[in-house]
Design a protein around this nucleic acid. Structure first.
Lengths: 340, 340
DNA sequence: GAAATGGTTGTGAACGCTAACATCATAACA
DNA sequence: TGTTATGATGTTAGCGTTCACAACCATTTC
């Protein structure tokens, strides 16, 4: 059954075989009405027989649509963004969209411009932007996208562009209030890098929740999301002489590093210090001790953002807003009431 | 400075403005020779002035190339695949390729067919397939790709198709031999799922290395790569009454779970049991105790695979082979000589 | 019985680009 | 001086689709 030198099969080949015009084949392929059942079947047969597959470049040229979504992602090798990627792909596929992907190494205008240009050269129908840090003015962003609908994920909670975010203020309040409710009054923090919106929000809310409870925030130091950063930050906290029995840490990875640092300082968790993390990575249950944390629903984030984006593509008049998801408190053994 | 209703700028617009034919503009854009410095400059000016950007659909239609690579990935939310993704993207961008991305949920022919069809509809110039498990016959795979060059990553070490793999036999030998060298003679294993090539190879090599040293393998149980799986596997090992002072675990995440299980059984690491993991995830240094492990160079894997793929695209006569990378032994505190 | 209706099909002409060829200077050679 | 090379440009015809329109047929309507 060897084949011809594999010339591409086109609409016309199908048309010839089924004895109709190529336009009619096009109608069948695109499920247009006004094709008789009889011809439709004939065409479908021919398509199957020839194993015809439409050429998307040609279609895209003619229609100015590509059925592709572009995704610009920062920090794809971090847990959160990787989860989002996976879920966005899933959601896009479900709706018949392919995915093109471009990573950036800094959230900055030049990198973002390059990535977006890259993707819009592919005439993507829409863009998902994972931009968890400051560095790009929203107005500039709108400029970059030039008419291509986009949804921002995990971004400025005050952004007035289509976006889906997790309410980090709420999450941090959950974490801090949990410690307060347990009876802690000296609560420190290891934050994420404060130019990340999420880190900033969690930091603010840590402070506000304490003040609202009539407590004064102990010290906060800035980490870099990594276990190594959390380890260093915890040591800095202790070196500075901070006294605390509760510690809110910006993510689970840093919490892991912090756990080690505390141990090295002969501080037991949770007996001497209670620790709360963020994210609920699969490892968190198996930390020593298992980590109380605030779970982020990355799957929902991906799903919602694609749903929103597709709505924007199909109905440009869809109102601009920010969808807000809520994280969930997961109690484990790293927190308990303070010794008295 | 408001604009027209934003008609797309084409080659012809640039041609008109700079007073040359559109073919000449095309030559400039594609950096062809035989354009005088003078016209080149004029065209370049016009391009800049109009902010012209070539339409890739049209180009792709005319050239039958897309300058896109497709990547089919299994388990993108695992550490390894996510790292590969990130590095592949990096390497592709460096060579002027965009990336389209499709995930599969099982390594099976139907899922793979859908993913590859999807991508080849986009007329990708080449495919990177991350297929770490059995489930697809290589010959079937070649059929699916129908002429599109592809490189397989992290796959069957015996595959006779273009592929880049990490030598897992070697890695496992490093791990096991390390324990033997320390003086351990009772060495157990928690393997990854054995339909993963990497897990299978590590498992075999664990066994062979022991036999070669005149030791008989203690027990091996199968985990699922997750901390929870490692935890359960360790308990199963102990429940079965296995006696061991050394434990080789298929990845760092499972090792984390195993560490907890051992602790629950009042077994100290490394005093009572030495543990070795695989991957060297960023968390591994901060486990309790820090984990001795075998580092996989995922960056190199991504880079090499793209390099190979691009070579296959540019020079179809490039010989088919398997590039083999070697993992690296990272000693930490989870291993020591057995108590006597 | 003519006109109007509505389903069904076909006919160019785009879409924006490049490949292949044709053309025309100019310089280089005999 | 004529012939060749060679650089620099333009012309034409696709690439595989879809869009807008025209055409055709069988009914139905007045």
């Amino acid at each position: 059954m060897a084949g011809q030198p594999s010339k591409r099969i086109t609409l016309h080949d199908v048309a010839r075989l089924s004895g109709v015009s190529s336009q009619t084949v096009s109608r069948v392929v695109n499920n247009y009405p006004y094709v008789s059942e009889d011809t439709r079947r004939r065409v479908l047969d021919a398509i199957q027989q020839l194993d015809y597959r439409p050429n998307r470049a040609a279609r895209s040229l003619a229609t100015r649509r590509s059925c592709m979504l572009g995704i610009v992602s920062f920090g794809i090798s971090y847990y959160g963004p990787a989860q989002m990627m996976a879920n966005i792909e899933q959601a896009a596929k479900l709706r018949g969209y392919s995915l093109a992907f471009s990573a950036i190494n800094r959230v900055a205008l030049d990198e973002m411009r390059e990535a977006i240009d890259n993707l819009s050269d592919l005439s993507v129908d829409g863009l998902v932007l994972i931009t968890p840090t400051t560095g790009i003015d929203v107005r500039e962003l709108v400029g970059l996208c030039e008419g291509v609908p986009f949804v921002q994920i995990d971004t400025d909670p005050a952004a007035r562009v289509p976006s889906v975010v997790i309410d980090q203020h709420y999450g941090s309040r959950l974490a801090t209030q949990h410690l307060i409710d347990l009876g802690h009054s000296a609560i420190g923090e290891i934050s994420g890098p404060l130019h990340w919106f999420g880190a900033q929000a969690r930091h603010e809310s840590w402070e506000q929740t304490l003040l609202a409870a009539g407590l004064s925030p102990v010290m906060s130091v800035e980490g870099d999301w990594t276990p190594a950063g959390g380890y260093a930050a915890a040591h800095r906290l202790l070196d500075a002489g901070a006294q605390f029995t509760g510690l809110v840490v910006g993510n689970d990875q840093m919490a892991l590093g912090a756990l080690r640092a505390l141990r090295e300082r002969r501080l037991r968790v949770p007996e001497d210090v209670s620790v709360v993390g963020f994210d609920d990575i699969p490892e968190a249950t198996y930390f020593e001790p298992p980590l109380t944390t605030i779970r982020q629903n990355f799957a929902a984030l991906g799903e919602q953002s694609v749903e929103y984006l597709v709505a924007l593509i199909d109905h440009p008049e869809t109102p601009v807003h920010q969808r807000v998801l809520h994280p969930q408190f997961i109690p484990r053994q790293s927190t308990q009431a303070p010794a008295r």
